[in-house]
Design a protein around this nucleic acid. Structure first.
Lengths: 350, 350
DNA sequence: TTTATTTACGCAATCGTTCCCGGCAACGAT
DNA sequence: ATCGTTGCCGGGAACGATTGCGTAAATAAA
């Protein structure tokens, strides 16, 4: 079964005109008489004519669609970003094709090849936690594919990037824990190869140092799959709790790790925050309803999507090769709730 | 900036062959000599040739992409369904284009027109809570567009449908509340025009009736926007609590309504389940971490996506018009936690 | 009346691919 | 020597739309 659409040829035949005339009439060309235009436009309107976008794509060598690769859309941060991406894309007549890497390098590659073979005009991507080899992305970028990175960026590829000030976000979170009396703060993070991991652990370490606490690397754990595999977070928590000097707080660097960590603590019946405080990056809108309500570092996800798309469309629609790239760095927000302090008070957010 | 790809014409020129020969060699036609084939295949491999899918789409009058419209991807139920859809689609060489209606009829229409103008081969849709007018969908279906409905289906359009046994899910949930001593059970649901609303409230009413309780229509509230607008749930809760005879339990028919209701109760510092029990449909994987852990009716979302896609691909790839349509009805699962009973015990799930 | 200009349209190429059709060798059979 | 057969390959139309160019008729200018 297929769905047959009206073509310009059908209109031409029905009206006894040539396809060129019909095409020009529809595009309101000056070389077509008002009467003919009216005739064509009315017929097209009445029969619900829509130009075939595939034929247009072939002719214009552009598909008017952009590819988006994230690790998973079920993650609030990414679904919010996608909402931002779509809002800008649709307003500019672009289609958005979403693909999920599920934190797997292989799936990321497959999606990448799939999207490029589907002739996308540009790409917005946050790389998977497994990705260490950027050669394919580099090759793609080298061939002229417009790319904008967000969240997990690739330093070695020069293009537009949209991130948050992860360093400061992590610094604020760690400082908040320190100011509430915690001294042995463990960090559970993604793969050490990820840009955000480096930045966030950097902020964490700096805050500790600024408070005269030396960093104990035993307290830093890496989850290669970013928490996609529950056992991974479970293992990190187990190891941390088995330490001779147990930590008194957890700092987690991403959404899945934060909720995974809470889940793990609750399973063990460890009281949060009395026995263990918890602060993490998260964009879930359910964190306030959790037990306990989570203190989180929140990212302006929607806005990040908007900016990334605006930058990408600039790249796509630029006549000359762009050489002047920018990295937009947005501010995070620390929202203090019950998981970090027994009795939440207003917290300076600066 | 554009991204130039290798074409069959380039290969033909480079190898001194005609495009027809190259095309046939690539498709392993019997009329091409082994030597020529080898030559072409090696050249194509070395230069990383990929057939232009847009040109193929134009030629074959199919885009190998399917459209999916849901109210929002941030909703766990839908993101899980989409994962199921993608898994089947990608395995069959189909691309998935996702659009969000955000529970708005207007946005649903815009997306629908957008997707069809982008030449999708088929459509999987769960209609928005605002949608009462199905004429455009009917017209589309009448023109031969393969459509599969899931979750929120349209009865008047005859095609494949994938749903859960909402009636039984709601019946089980209501019975569970009744068996735990609740007598005035309020229901907060979506628009009354939605298929799932009718079924779920049907199960709710039947359970009450079977327990000798007459249904008080004052206890049934409808949220036109399905909880997308927080104030809407807030208002429903306010009205229910202001009733002369206050309810002693809430039953909610969808994810957003369930968490929205909990949020509303917590804001009022109403103790769940001591002062008010809560059971609702939800697919969020955070419900066990909430305060209190939620008793939920869970749907096999991933599987629904898989089935819907399998059925859609059958429609798309069928030579003759399909006249024999099926409605797949899957079972829900009642997961009993703290929000419905003070002291959760194992519950019969049958 | 002749020439130049404008108006209004059609022809055909193009995008990348497939596929029907036709053709030219080489071969064996007559 | 001639005729079919087979193997191998190229020409060209088609998919739907745009667009440069050509051109007929109508009008204006000389």
């Amino acid at each position: 079964m297929k769905f047959e659409a009206l073509t310009i040829k059908d209109i031409a035949k029905a009206l006894g005109l040539s396809t060129s005339t019909v095409s020009r009439a529809l595009r309101d060309s000056y070389e077509i008489s008002p009467e003919t235009k009216k005739l064509v436009l009315e017929y097209a309107e009445k029969n619900n004519y829509h130009p075939n976008p595939i034929a247009l794509s072939l002719k214009e060598r552009r598909s008017r669609s952009i590819g988006v690769i994230v690790c998973e859309i079920a993650n609030s941060f990414f679904s919010q970003t996608i909402n931002g991406i779509e809002s800008i894309a649709y307003n500019n007549g672009y289609n958005v094709i979403i693909a999920q890497s599920r934190e797997s390098f292989d799936r990321e590659m497959i999606n990448l090849q799939y999207l490029t073979s589907r002739s996308i005009d540009g790409l917005i991507i946050s790389v998977s936690t497994e990705t260490k080899d950027f050669s394919y992305l580099k090759e793609l970028h080298g061939k002229g594919m417009p790319i904008v990175f967000f969240d997990r960026i690739v330093d070695e590829i020069e293009t537009h990037k949209v991130i948050v000030d992860s360093y400061k976000g992590a610094y604020d979170a760690t400082r908040h824990l320190l100011e509430n009396g915690h001294r042995r703060i463990a960090a559970i993070s993604n793969s050490p190869f990820l840009s955000i991991t480096k930045e966030r652990l950097g902020g964490y370490r700096a805050a500790l140092a600024d408070h005269g606490i030396s960093v104990d690397e035993d307290l830093v754990r890496y989850c290669q799959h970013g928490g996609m595999i529950p056992a991974e977070v479970e293992e990190a928590v187990t190891e941390l709790l088995a330490l001779p000097q147990k930590p008194d707080a957890f700092f987690t660097t991403s959404d899945k790790l934060t909720t995974g960590c809470l889940r793990s603590l609750k399973t063990r019946k460890i009281k949060v925050p009395q026995e263990m405080a918890l602060v993490g990056f998260s964009n879930t809108d359910l964190t306030e309803l959790l037990d306990p309500p989570l203190t989180i570092i929140k990212q302006p996800a929607f806005e990040m999507g908007e900016i990334a798309t605006t930058l990408l469309l600039q790249l796509i629609e630029s006549k000359r090769p762009v050489i002047d790239f920018e990295t937009r760095r947005l501010a995070t927000e620390l929202i203090v709730r019950g998981s970090s302090i027994g009795n939440p008070v207003l917290q300076d957010n600066s």
